[in-house]
Design a protein around this nucleic acid. Structure first.
Lengths: 165, 165
DNA sequence: TTCACTGCAAACCTTTTGCAATTCT
DNA sequence: AGAATTGCAAAAGGTTTGCAGTGAA
């Protein structure tokens, strides 16, 4: 059950609430404290169209005159990731706010929230998709190789609608 | 003689030639020079069952009394990757020799040699598979999102046959 | 001999740990 | 006040650049 009530037909996005509101609510609901550094990081991620590294987050916040320690950024990122509020790109280990709701995992059998990433080579923005057929792929690979698959990561690279249109 | 004992892997798809032979041939064919550092790195990768980071490669070679600069390792890795002789793991950015032939790409339409990785959580060895159905997945995602996919990366995590049996 | 390649220097980014100080509730 | 969280110190690994010297062809 989601901590936030949703319209029945808006299953895929957090459209009812801003990302910042959603994130703060999720943290509070988990018994975590709403601190200034956390708010600043969440706000920055909410407004960044591209994924950021821990160091880049620190730099951006510093340049805004806010000052934050790199270690704190790492720990905040860790917390946000644990609560499925951000994605980590495999190809760069940068992070970005998660735009799909936790319930929209491709695999209902795994607790992992499993969204797959579309990385645009032009503008470097990253969007998320469900992975229709990903379970079939997992099954096929599992059969072909003697390998028991517990999780998987998929990233697609190409050109997004805005950049190609 | 090489300081590293050679154990040609007969499970290779490059069955006629050892990985080392194949790699050296590929480099020579591309007009590149066969240098001592390159031979040592290739030999090390040929005999490593697990992926290695650039730093780990440097450490291993040094411990064999050969000495190599970290920067050289990076550049050699870059060269090998360009010629499809190694894979880079997304999840750790370590590299491993490529065991499947370049022709066995999952997607005949892309020049990319596209193999998908099976990472064992137990022994950390990485094997490669063709991706039956991956093209279907790419098509499905491309349709669902407004996104023109040019390449993709897939990693599966789980337990390999040796570790589960 | 030539120039592709390596080694060296140097700088910066990445990540983790322990402990003291701070601050949210 | 008490507990969660941040800042600081420090260390080690990871990555990149330019330049000078070496060595493969």
């Amino acid at each position: 059950m989601s901590p936030i009530s949703r319209q029945p037909n808006k299953q895929d996005t957090h459209a009812d609430f801003s990302y910042t509101e959603q994130a703060l609510h999720t943290l509070k609901h988990a018994g975590l404290r709403i601190t200034k550094p956390r708010k600043v990081v969440i706000d920055l991620l909410d407004n960044s169209p591209v994924p950021l590294s821990a160091y880049e987050i620190k730099e951006k916040i510093d340049s805004l005159g806010e000052k934050i320690d790199t270690v704190s950024v790492y720990r905040i990122i860790e917390t946000l990731e644990k609560h499925h509020l951000i994605h980590r790109l495999l190809s760069s280990s940068k992070v970005q706010k998660c735009r799909l709701s936790p319930e929209s995992s491709c695999d209902k059998h795994q607790s992992d929230h499993c969204h797959h990433l579309l990385v645009c080579s032009e503008c470097h923005t990253v969007s998320e998709v469900h992975c229709p057929g990903a379970n079939d792929l997992v099954q096929a690979v599992q059969q072909a190789a003697h390998f028991q698959i517990t999780s998987h990561a998929i990233e697609f690279y190409g050109v997004c609608g805005s950049c190609s249109g």
